[in-house]
Design a protein around this nucleic acid. Structure first.
Lengths: 202, 202
DNA sequence: GGGTGCATGTAATGGGTTACATGATTCT
DNA sequence: AGAATCATGTAACCCATTACATGCACCC
């Protein structure tokens, strides 16, 4: 049986691109570059998504394409929002965000941690510490850049909110990691202790 | 050109199923039910994944299928880990977890919040408050159940760690939401103030 | 009589990454 | 000489959800 509802609103990728183009006209390549230091800490798109999506958006009349000829390099295809695109973007922004599906491989491995023992779990948790510390440094760098280069942009407070989200989250995860490492250590000592009395290894 | 490396290790779904089956033999239906109150807060699988994956695992010899006839109901297909399956699971557990791609629609909408104004952003943040508060209640309920029913299970500490992760995360997000709501309010007042002097609306 | 739970599975559809393909320019 | 950057795009594949398909039992 065929699906009746067309359904396909094109997905969030298209909406994200509309949003980015609302900051200024850009090529697919530019978009990728912009993502990395603006929304890269909570959103990602690959070329395999970006280029086809831009084409579809153009076909829908939500963006407009202009080709800039350059010497040597391939032509730059610069896209800009149309009025329709602006409207669509605003409509989408009002809808409440759909809850994302959580899939946390670290927690999955930790959950089954008994099969490997304390040291493997500890290594996984320590890896999280490293990534979150580096995430915090990234947030700081982006924050500085924003406050310097976008001092008078009316969007600045919104951008800082997303950074703050990342900071809160990372700091909480670091706190959790600290506690978890303590627990793992206690477990290790407990295991040794039990082992000496001969009732370890199930 | 054909891909040379077979690549397909079957993905994490299969590994998650191996893990769950390490807790006891189960049917696909049981697995879905178990997920919801054990790893449901950080992992999800749909039937459309579970049934085909179990079939593949059986073909690989990592699980064994036994059919239980029941009256009235369809046959129950109960799967259990084979020795090979246990080995595979342990091997996978040792590998460091791959970082998951973040895709946070709330932050995306907040990032472009200027296009809609303060009240829309506020609504989105308030929705987050609701979901995180309910998440906290879920964690509490699961914690109680675990401490009651799995008092002597050697895996208990690992399971509690994953719960604690959720708690830390949710509490941090609530904290962030509180701060963000304050910022939004300040912005609103700022906007009004400016509006009265006639330089609002970009 | 109708909803919910038990119980299995497949097909259509959608979303997304990675590898491939191309090729000039600029920096080291 | 070789790597990195600019710049575009497609094809293959993988992963995942949702809807469909089926049907009995039990409770209200």
């Amino acid at each position: 049986m065929k699906r009746v509802t067309p359904k396909s609103d094109g997905g969030t990728t298209q909406k994200a691109l509309l949003g980015l183009l609302s900051l200024g006209s850009m090529s697919g390549y530019d978009i990728r570059a912009l993502i990395s230091w603006s929304i890269g800490h909570f959103w990602s798109e690959s070329y395999g998504q970006i280029y086809p999506a831009l084409k579809r958006l153009a076909a829908l009349g939500l963006v407009e394409k202009k080709t800039e000829r350059t010497k040597g390099r391939p032509d730059r295809h610069v896209y800009s929002l149309t009025r329709q695109g602006q409207v669509q973007l605003k409509e989408w922004l009002r809808l409440s965000p759909v809850a994302e599906v959580q899939r946390n491989e670290l927690l999955l491995k930790l959950f089954f941690g008994r099969h490997t023992g304390v040291d493997v779990s500890r290594a996984h948790v320590l890896a999280l510490v490293v990534t979150q510390q580096s995430a915090l440094r990234v947030y700081e760098a982006i924050g500085k850049r924003l406050r310097r280069e976008k001092k008078n942009d009316p969007s600045l407070p919104y951008w800082l909110m997303t950074l703050s989200y990342g900071r809160h989250r990372s700091e909480a995860l670091l706190q959790w990691a600290k506690e978890t490492l303590r627990v793992l250590e206690r477990m290790e000592r407990g295991e040794v202790w039990r082992k000496e009395r001969g009732d370890a290894h199930k």
